[in-house]
Amino acid sequence: MKNYVKIEKYINYFFWTFVSFTIFLISVFLIKFNILNKNLKYFLILLFSIVNLFIYFNIFLHIKYKDYKSYYNIITIIFTLIIIFIIIFGSRYIMLSLHSNTMVNKI
C-alpha cells in the first residue's frame, strides 16, 4: 500500500509538470506566431503565467494552500514580492526623475 501511494504521488507530479510545460509551449507559440490580437494574447500569457506560478508553488516549493504550516512561507513570499516591487519601481521612478530633471535644453 505504501508503494502505491508513492507511485500515485509521482504520477501526480508528472501530470502537473506536463501541464506546466504544455502551458509554457502554448505561451511560446502565442508569442512566436501572431494568431490572436494583442490584448487577448497578453491576457492569455498573463493567465498562463499565474497558473504556472501556482503549479510551481505546489509541486516544486511544496507550498500547499490548505496547510496551516505553509502560512508563514506564503507570507514570506508575499513580503519578498513587495520588496522586489519597491526596488524595481522605486529605481524606475528615480531614473525617470533624474532623466527629466537633467535634460539639457537644446538651443
Score class of each variant (00 low, 15 high):
Phe89Glu: 11
Ile86Leu: 15
Lys41Gln: 14
Ser97Cys: 13
Ser91Leu: 08
Ile82His: 03
Tyr56Ser: 07
Thr102Ala: 07
Lys69Val: 06
Asn39Met: 09
Met103Cys: 12
Ile74Cys: 04
Ser97Ala: 11
Asn37Cys: 08
Thr76Gln: 14
Asn34Ile: 05
Leu81Cys: 11
Leu53Met: 08
Lys66Trp: 15
Leu53His: 06
Asn58Ser: 04
Ile87Glu: 05
Ile55Ser: 00
Ser70Met: 06
Phe54Tyr: 09
Tyr71Ile: 14
Ile35Asn: 08
Ile77Ser: 03
Leu81Ile: 11
Ile31Met: 13
His62Thr: 10
Ile50Cys: 05
His99Arg: 12
Phe79Trp: 05
Leu98Asn: 15
Tyr71Leu: 10
Leu53Asp: 07
Ile94Arg: 13
Ile83Tyr: 03
Ile77Gly: 02
Lys64Ala: 12
Ile75Asn: 13
Thr76Trp: 03
Leu40Trp: 11
Lys69Cys: 07
Leu53Ala: 11
Ser49Val: 04
Lys38Phe: 14
Lys32Thr: 08
Ser100Phe: 15
Phe48Val: 01
His99Ile: 14
Leu30His: 01
Ser97Gly: 11
Ser70Glu: 11
Tyr56Ala: 06
Ile84Phe: 08
Phe54Gly: 01
Leu36Ala: 05
Ile75Leu: 15
Leu61Asp: 03
Ser100Val: 12
Ile31Cys: 07
Ser49Arg: 02
Asn34Cys: 06
Leu40Cys: 08
Ile50Leu: 07
Ser91Asn: 15
Gly90Met: 00
Ile59Gly: 00
Asn37Arg: 08
Thr102Gly: 07
Ile84Cys: 08
Leu30Ile: 01
Val51Glu: 04
Leu96Thr: 11
Ile50Ala: 05
Thr76Met: 07
Ile87Ser: 03
Tyr42Pro: 06
Tyr65His: 12
Leu46Ile: 12
Thr102Gln: 12
Asn73His: 10
Val51Lys: 02
Ile84Arg: 10
Lys32Phe: 14
Ile45His: 01
Phe57Pro: 02
Ile45Asn: 00
Leu81Arg: 04
Leu36Asn: 00
Asn39Ser: 12
Tyr72Leu: 14
Arg92Gly: 11
Asp67Ile: 03
Ile45Met: 00
Ile82Phe: 08
Tyr93Asp: 12
Leu30Ser: 02
Ser100Lys: 14
Ile55Pro: 00
Ile94Cys: 09
Ile59Trp: 00
Asn58Trp: 04
Val51His: 01
Ile78Glu: 11
Phe33Ala: 10
Lys69Asn: 09
Ile83Met: 10
Gly90Arg: 01
Ile86Val: 10
Phe57His: 03
Ile88His: 04
Phe85Val: 03
Leu44Cys: 02
Tyr93Lys: 09
Leu47Trp: 01
Lys64Tyr: 15
